[in-house]
């Protein structure tokens, strides 16, 4: 079983990402959407936490949400793959269930 966790909050405002990392199990994925994409950006104080979780989880960020916020695909950490809405749909299909960590 694998779960797709979506995170739509900035980690600098809400604890959704923190909670998500606490409960996401090996083989699951985290998709950053909406304000959640700020959590995927390289060079923030959260990079360590993401790197630590990177060997058990896969990270994705929604490209259109990055772009809307003035962030390029290169601005996210190396462990984060950028996807579009099609990719979002594929992720939902590929995982057994989706949990929106609102």
């Amino acid at each position: 079983m694998s779960i797709l966790h979506t995170v739509n909050k900035s980690p600098f405002e809400k604890n959704s990402l923190e909670t998500c990392l606490r409960i996401a199990m090996e083989g699951s994925s985290v998709l950053f959407i909406e304000d959640g994409v700020y959590g995927a950006v390289d060079g923030t104080s959260l990079n360590g936490k993401l790197s630590d979780a990177g060997n058990r989880l896969k990270f994705y960020a929604l490209g259109p949400d990055l772009k809307a916020r003035g962030l390029s695909e290169n601005s996210v950490m190396n462990c984060v793959e950028v996807v579009d809405y099609d990719g979002f749909v594929d992720l939902v299909v590929r995982h057994d269930a989706t949990y929106a960590c609102l």
Binding site: N8, D84, Y85, D86, F88, V89, D90
Partner: peptide
């Protein structure tokens, strides 16, 4: 077969847009 749940109103929160964009992409696929 997918279902979408939308918990926020229009314009107030991006969720209303994301849900739409996701639904449209799923249908297109």
């Amino acid at each position: 077969k997918l279902s979408v749940v939308l918990n926020e109103g229009p314009y107030q929160h991006q969720a209303a847009d994301t849900a739409y964009n996701f639904t449209r992409a799923a249908l297109a696929k």
